[in-house]
Design a protein around this nucleic acid. Structure first.
Length: 211
DNA sequence: GACCAGATGTACT
DNA sequence: GTACATCTGGTCT
């Protein structure tokens, strides 16, 4: 597979600054494509994914969003806070989903991180995925499994390396025409919002993955 | 390939 | 009690 960075230099990537996240959620979602999701743990070291699929969730007016209608519960509390923090929740009794909070306090919007391709630490991701060598992180549950993300990482600040989870820019720029806008997945209950084109999918060719 | 059932815990009604 | 921002392994083509 694609090892485009030497493992030794991987942890040096600077976290995106908070201003990146303090923008309209749709802009943040689209701009996250091609960025590096970096995970560092004491036990395992560093794993990195390049993001290829995200969804925007637009807060109180979005029936598919956990904060629809202004819902504010212990689970959704992180979404109500500062942009640039991780909102991780448990679904279907066995999986986790990673979101990044956008906009700012009192505007509970977020981007669901749905998929990425391995850049560094692929063997470790395979181990975390129970030995499955394919489809390592092409869905939100798989992505969290490959990156060892659970509710323990809920509320981490992505603008700091201290929590072992951050997002960085290494200069790769998806070309706009390679990005598809589609309806979001798994939200048929959301009425009109189910058809909103808030899912962003980047299908990179190998050469697109280089700077 | 497509389709389907089952697994499972939490939030919320 | 019900629905859920999912995935896997089985079956069938």
């Amino acid at each position: 597979m694609m090892h485009l960075r030497k493992p030794g230099m991987t942890a040096q990537y600077e976290p995106l600054r908070r201003a990146f996240y303090q923008r309209p959620t749709v802009d943040v979602a689209q701009d996250l494509l091609g960025k590096l999701l970096i995970r560092r743990t004491e036990e395992d070291g560093v794993t990195i994914l390049r993001l290829t699929e995200v969804e925007a969730y637009l807060g109180a007016g979005d029936r598919a969003c956990h904060t629809f209608g202004g819902r504010r519960t212990p689970r959704t509390e992180v979404m109500w806070g500062q942009a640039g923090f991780a909102y991780i929740y448990f679904v279907y009794g066995m999986y986790h989903c990673l979101n990044v909070v956008t906009v700012g306090p009192g505007e509970p919007e977020a981007v669901l991180v749905r998929g990425g391709v391995p850049v560094t630490g692929e063997a470790l991701m395979v181990t975390r995925r129970g030995g499955r060598r394919r489809a390592l992180a092409d869905g939100p549950g798989k992505l969290c499994q490959a990156m060892a993300l659970t509710r323990e990482q809920n509320g981490l600040d992505l603008c700091s390396r201290g929590g072992g989870l951050w997002i960085a820019d290494d200069g790769v720029r998806p070309s706009i025409e390679k990005i598809q806008r589609l309806p979001r997945v798994g939200i048929a209950y959301a009425g009109e919002a189910a058809s909103w084109p808030l899912r962003f999918v980047w299908s990179p060719r190998t050469r697109d993955l280089r700077r």
